[in-house]
Amino acid sequence: MKSYLYKVWAIFSKDVRTELRTKEILSAMAVFSLLMVLVFIFALPGKLQEPQDVVPGLLWIAFTFAGVLGLNRSFIIEKDRGSLEGLLLAPVDRSAIFLAKMLGNFAFITIVELLTLPLFSLLFNYSVFNLGLLPVLLMGTLGFAEIGTIFAAMAVNTRAREVLLPVLFFPVMLPVIIAAAQATSAVLANRPFGEISGQLQLIGIFDLVFLIVPLLLFELVIEE
């Protein structure tokens, strides 16, 4: 168990180190989400007066789209540089590769989300800083990372890989997006925490199920 976790850590830290040197995924996602916020503001100028109606939904739209961008890169980078074969040849269980990649994606998307939140608050002039938002954000992002990582690994070996990931990813993610947007709007309206327990439960079940299922399926998806 300890050596398994060490292997996961090794692949994860490799991803983080690569990212810190190239800043390819993070910069693309951050710039993209900034542009998304601007597009929302230009597209919905009337809504600046009542941001509480639109901000929860827009937040999750921005997270989903920016997330897909980063998820796509996570395997395409490996494939294009030929390092995916190297990774598969490494003497580790395939599920360790999934776990490490998933944690890497989770970390990158979370960082971008935390950067996007102040932008939203600033430009929509509506504070989204609320401690209750943190569990919703983290659990929702975990779901994104889990499903996104296995679908990115699936899409990378197909013809239309950049286009295919969002097509696969959005419909399957809809339960998390619905629940997370509902929970976010309840939290931002300062409603009691008990009101969102149902949504959090659903996201929690989603996270748990889709942590286990892709771990088992990953060897099927990635085999050469």
Binding site: G198, L202, V213, P214
Partner: peptide, 15 residues
């Protein structure tokens, strides 16, 4: 994955 997702979709549409 798709088959497991369907019940979760159903529960999420309650809200």
């Amino acid at each position: 994955i798709g088959f497991i997702d369907v019940p979760l979709v159903y529960f999420s549409t309650r809200w």
